[in-house]
Amino acid sequence: MILQIKNLFKWVNSGGNRVFLLNDIDFTVNEGEFISIMGPSGSGKTTLLNVIGMLDDFNEGEYAFLNEPVHTLKEKYRANLYKEYIGFVFQSYHLIDELTVYENIETPLLYKKHSASERKALVADMLDRFNIVGKKDLFPSQLSGGQQQLVGIARALVSSPKLILADEPTGNLNSTQGTEIMELFKQLNKEGVTIIQVTHSESNATYGSRTIRLKDGMIVNN
């Protein structure tokens, strides 16, 4: 078991009324799973993903990540936790424009204080694996969307996380590129990485082992 969420609520107050963004969420993710979160716009998919990724808070409930109770952890310790075990992949890639491909992939390692030689080896490994060695000195603006997303995934993977959180990873890509990325995820999952993706597309969801459907912040089918 990699994470467990119990009776989790998140709300905002709007004009005296409580508007629930996440309403009594309850689920468990085991190691090696590939989960797709689906639902209409505004159903709370991204919010849930951010809560899982510890980028966002919640108001009530319990969340255990690798048996650590996240809701009671201090900010700093929580940051260490996700730095160590979680990689993010975003719909709009979110690469740092001022850095080259190589440097973008290297950045998480800098924050994890790897030595220079280690970094070199790990980044070279990634470049090799995704076949982008030739592009390592280019800046994000010089790449196509699919290539940028490859770099994004490489960056998420470089620190060998246990869990990858992907927020509509193919949302900005054409169908061919999208399929390539999904195939890549499937491959990674086979190699043992746990993946949670948010998606609108039923076909993308079929790559996963399980689908969680949300509506108005509630899980309607698990």
């Binding site: 740092i96 424009d97 998420a156």
Partner: peptide
Amino acid sequence: AKEVGIRKSIGSSKRQ
């Protein structure tokens, strides 16, 4: 701001 967000999400601390 975007850069800050990305850096934080891939593990940068505030101090860094």
